[in-house]
């Protein structure tokens, strides 16, 4: 069975790099590995060999068993429509102005499209390990709630409200004029906006059964996956990490560990500068050791509060841009061995 490793966390904490490092290590340990990434920095993309790629996995030229692919969400959303709707409806959907907007704008839509791609790869039977760098959209937790929200969107909850009852079989039953609330809404919104949105939602509704089944399958994958939360010891990413620990168990598995990126060595907190150290360098250590102390406190608090395993990745000035550097990052990290690679 394919093992899924979902790497989550706030934007800018090094999620993409860590996922790549895990994928490299998994491939080195003999697993057929696919690294699914969202938006890698150019140099990292080059290292993974996904610089010019789209959704189709491509083999890494330097490391056997390592493959990479992008999760191109905007494009995938078209594929979602074509998969779940009749050809004629699908055509109408993808050319609708609201569909473009929903794809770009409905916060869950990109995440859902990405999650479908992930599920496809997990079910293909071609991989031992799939490492997913989850999309950062609106906090990242949306990747996990996306199936339910998408089901809701296409499931006619909104249409039921607009039409004021059980879903009618035909769109001709839909009459704004018959309902006071809708008349007011229509007056406020001007013109036929509400009607046009309703038309769009009707088309979307036809995908409900198919989307529901797929969403349920994706949610099963989420519950069986190993989830890692990446953070730094800074307030904003820590708030996000807290949220993953609080909310993920409702929709997926509980995170297996929290990875503190940009960690400073514990021994800096107490290491004294030798007597003959130039004052500038002694002062430099003093400042960094105050950072190390602050970081250690945050890690300790987090571990105690969420009763979780903590891993640390040392702070490196330059983010890794080669396979070797990615593997090195995994080696220098502490606590990632629980992944078993």
């Amino acid at each position: 069975m394919t093992r899924a490793i979902l790497v989550t966390g706030a934007g800018g904490v090094g999620k993409t790099t860590l996922s790549a490092a895990i994928a490299v290590r998994a491939a080195r340990s003999g697993k057929r590995t696919l690294a699914l990434t969202v938006d890698p920095a150019r140099r990292l993309a080059d290292a993974l060999g996904v610089g010019t790629l789209g959704a189709v996995p491509t083999a890494n030229a330097q490391l056997e068993l390592l493959w990479g692919a992008m999760l191109d969400a905007e494009h995938s959303w078209d594929a979602v429509a074509r998969r779940h709707a009749d050809p004629e409806v699908a055509e109408r959907l993808v050319s609708s102005e609201f569909f473009r907007v929903a794809a770009r704008h409905f916060p869950a839509s990109q995440s859902y499209a990405a999650a479908e791609r992930m599920a496809d790869h997990l079910e293909s039977g071609e991989w031992d390990v799939v490492v997913v760098d989850t999309p950062p959209a609106a906090g990242g937790i949306e990747f996990f709630t996306a199936p339910a929200e998408t089901r809701d969107l296409v499931g006619g909850r909104l249409i039921r409200w607009i039409t004021g009852g059980p879903l009618p079989g035909r769109r001709s039953l839909f009459r704004i004029a018959g309902r006071p609330a809708l008349r007011m809404a229509s007056a406020v919104l001007g013109s036929d906006l509400l009607e046009r949105v309703a038309e769009f939602l009707f088309d979307l509704r036809t995908t409900h059964d198919s989307v529901s089944r797929r969403a349920a399958a994706i949610e099963r994958h989420f519950r069986q996956a190993s989830t890692l939360v990446v953070t730094t010891a800074d307030p904003a990413p820590l708030r996000e990490a807290e949220r993953f620990f609080r909310e993920l168990p409702k929709v997926a598995s509980r995170p297996e560990l929290v990875v503190f990126n940009r960690s400073l060595p514990d021994f800096w907190t107490t290491a004294p500068a030798p007597a003959d150290t130039p004052p500038v360098l002694a002062e430099n250590l003093r400042r960094w050791s105050s950072e190390a102390t602050r970081q250690a406190a945050h890690r300790g608090e987090f571990a105690a509060h969420h009763k979780t395993v903590v891993a640390t990745v040392p702070w490196q000035p330059e983010s890794p841009t080669s396979l070797h550097a990615l593997d090195e990052l995994f080696t220098r990290a502490e606590g990632l061995d629980v992944l078993g690679f």
């Binding site: 060595p265 290491a271 150290t277 130039p278 002694a282 430099n284 000035p317």
Partner: peptide, 28 residues
């Protein structure tokens, strides 16, 4: 920037490592 080369300090230990990190980050 630190203003002095890392090599003016000890060649290992926390002082050295912190100077290297700082220097590397400044460069980046």
């Amino acid at each position: 920037p630190l203003g002095v080369p890392v090599s003016t300090g000890p060649s290992k230990g926390a002082v050295h490592e912190a100077a290297l990190l700082h220097h590397g980050l400044v460069e980046e």
